[in-house]
Design a binder for these strands. Structure first.
Lengths: 133, 133
DNA sequence: ATCATGTGTTAGATTTTCTAACATGGTTTT
DNA sequence: AAAACCATGTTAGAAAATCTAACACATGAT
């Protein structure tokens, strides 16, 4: 159920590693946190610790910045996407129970198209996937 | 080809994170490095940076330690396993080119059984897999 | 022309990690 | 039994990484 998400949201990386992975400066990363685009965990000693989810999100943010969107816009976009993702996941779960495989495939395809219409970066899984497995 | 391995061997984690993930002390981790059971990368400032491969290896080491095996023994075991893994991978590659899918499945099953006979922990992928995806 | 935004830069404090050394409780070896 | 060895704990001092806060600056909006 939530096992996967717990893992992907496990705080693991210090800001230095995240800088390399995302090619953002520490200043930028902290600024985005200040504007609540991300909420990295903290160590006992107050150092930031980022999860894979955080990093995916930062890569998305970078992408949106490159598209000229400002903090407020990005915040909204990320919010909407989150909601969409939730809805879609719920639907998928319902679908799994109620639909045949064939119908399910169809539904997912539709959702993917719909998502593609709205955002450049995918809903499913952030770009971090290129770093692992 | 080697893309996957590059990713899994990408130096990402500082020792603090590795301590939590493996439940080993810094002293232990450094000691194992001293005895060349692992070779973590270093930052420009000489801090250790561990990869997923390193962490998998540390979990294996921990397991072997728990079984009462000493440094020398562990070193040899890890070496042998590495070689085995290489051989198996080479065979698998050759197999992919030469065999039908059916034959390939058979070969892999055999190899898995063979591996299981020798080591408790699997050859394929370390325990870290439980943290991601 | 002024203001707001996003980022750069700097300073001083704090946390984390580093190496090296010594301490210690179990095992072997003598 | 004493000595030596092994894996780990602990400590000290130095160096690196990160933190917050402040000020600087270029660009685009009002």
């Amino acid at each position: 159920m939530s096992g996967k998400e717990i893992r992907r949201s496990m705080p693991l990386f210090p800001i230095g590693t995240v800088m390399q992975l995302t090619e953002l400066t520490a200043r930028q990363i902290r600024y985005y946190e200040e504007h609540e685009l991300i909420s990295p965990a903290r160590t006992d000693g107050n150092r930031r610790l980022f999860s894979l989810v955080d990093i995916d999100r930062l890569l998305e943010i970078k992408d949106l910045i490159d598209q000229g969107i400002n903090m407020a816009g990005i915040k909204q976009l990320l919010l909407v996407k989150e909601q969409q993702a939730n809805v879609i996941q719920q639907q998928a779960e319902k679908a799994k129970q109620e639909l045949t495989d064939d119908q399910l495939r169809n539904l997912l395809r539709q959702e993917l198209q719909q998502a593609g219409r709205f955002n450049r970066s995918s809903l499913r899984q952030g770009d971090m996937s290129r770093f692992f497995h």
